[in-house]
Computed example of a mutant assay.
Amino acid sequence: MDAVLSTLFSSGEEELYILDNLAYFMVFMAACTLVSLLFVNVPYGRYSSSKYGFAVNVRFAWFVQELPAFLVPMCLVFWTTCAKTSLLPNQLLIAMYFCHYVQRSLIYPFLIRGGKPTPFASFALAFVFCCYNGYMQIRYLSHYAEYPASWVTHPCFIVGSMLWSVGWLVNMHSDHILRNLRKPGETGYKIPTGGMFEFVSGANFLGEITEWAGFALAGHSIHSLSFAIFTAVVLTSRAVSHHKWYLAKFEDYPKNRKALIPFLL
């Protein structure tokens, strides 16, 4: 892996420059995505359409598209000379990243019950994004990120880690609720209840946004911040779309429930 990277970059300074620019480009992509999502929903699940390509089995799609977010970082950590992985702040941030993607790529796809196929365009874009982001996040943390020895006691790291933990738990619990909405043999959509779903329609999205916001605060870099911004843009749009869909679908949908932020939005 070191040999591959050495052929791509003439020096560490050049690679770090590229990593920085990848982060800035992700912020630009977030802005473009925000504009596009004002006119069209992300084509997945209940919003799927044949115009975005042939349908891919939802379990297969989730497994394959998320796998690079786990495998690329694994290669970077174990098959390269990692200058920073012996440092505690870097280790903890890398652990946060892996904790999410071990579940999301190796466990979550096999827990899916039913689910509509994923259009190929969405599947392909997600695959590319996971390669891109997995490289950017973990290459920076394992090889370039420098934190003072006391960073783990800094308020930014402590608050960020707490936000990440709360977000991860909300995300996991919300996914569990969604998986168990229907009893064996039942079909159709139901209103999710329990947990943060008592307050917002997009409880799972709120959890993941909170996760990566905490990760960005703890990581204190443009790389983690760009990911948090992109995640917030995409998942906020999904939460709002879901909320509108629920209100139109169910006459008895709780009127006090918000789309994403309890009591506000």
Rank of each mutant, 00 (worst) to 15 (best):
residue 101 Y to M: 14
residue 103 Q to F: 13
residue 211 E to W: 01
residue 68 P to G: 03
residue 73 P to G: 04
residue 109 P to A: 06
residue 242 H to T: 11
residue 108 Y to W: 14
residue 90 N to D: 13
residue 24 Y to P: 00
residue 2 D to S: 14
residue 119 P to A: 07
residue 65 Q to C: 11
residue 20 D to R: 08
residue 231 T to W: 04
residue 21 N to R: 07
residue 210 T to N: 03
residue 188 G to A: 08
residue 251 E to K: 10
residue 257 R to N: 03
residue 51 K to G: 01
residue 183 K to S: 08
residue 24 Y to S: 04
residue 1 M to D: 13
residue 38 L to A: 15
residue 258 K to G: 03
residue 78 F to A: 10
residue 232 A to N: 02
residue 107 I to E: 13
residue 138 I to S: 12
residue 132 Y to H: 04
residue 45 G to R: 00
residue 260 L to A: 07
residue 140 Y to V: 05
residue 1 M to N: 08
residue 129 F to D: 12
residue 193 T to F: 12
residue 187 T to R: 01
residue 218 A to W: 12
residue 238 R to P: 09
residue 184 P to S: 04
residue 96 M to A: 05
residue 138 I to C: 15
residue 39 F to M: 04
residue 175 D to V: 08
residue 129 F to Y: 15
residue 240 V to E: 06
residue 147 Y to I: 12
residue 44 Y to C: 05
residue 145 A to N: 09
residue 207 G to C: 05
residue 37 L to D: 02
residue 140 Y to W: 09
residue 250 F to K: 02
residue 265 L to P: 00
residue 210 T to G: 05
residue 180 N to M: 04
residue 209 I to T: 14
residue 69 A to L: 03
residue 131 C to L: 03
residue 195 G to Y: 00
residue 45 G to S: 07
residue 63 F to I: 09
residue 128 V to C: 11
residue 186 E to K: 00
residue 224 S to P: 08
residue 66 E to V: 12
residue 202 G to V: 03
residue 44 Y to H: 08
residue 162 M to S: 13
residue 242 H to K: 06
residue 102 V to D: 08
residue 173 H to F: 08
residue 113 R to G: 06
residue 100 H to C: 05
residue 101 Y to F: 12
residue 189 Y to T: 10
residue 242 H to W: 00
residue 69 A to W: 01
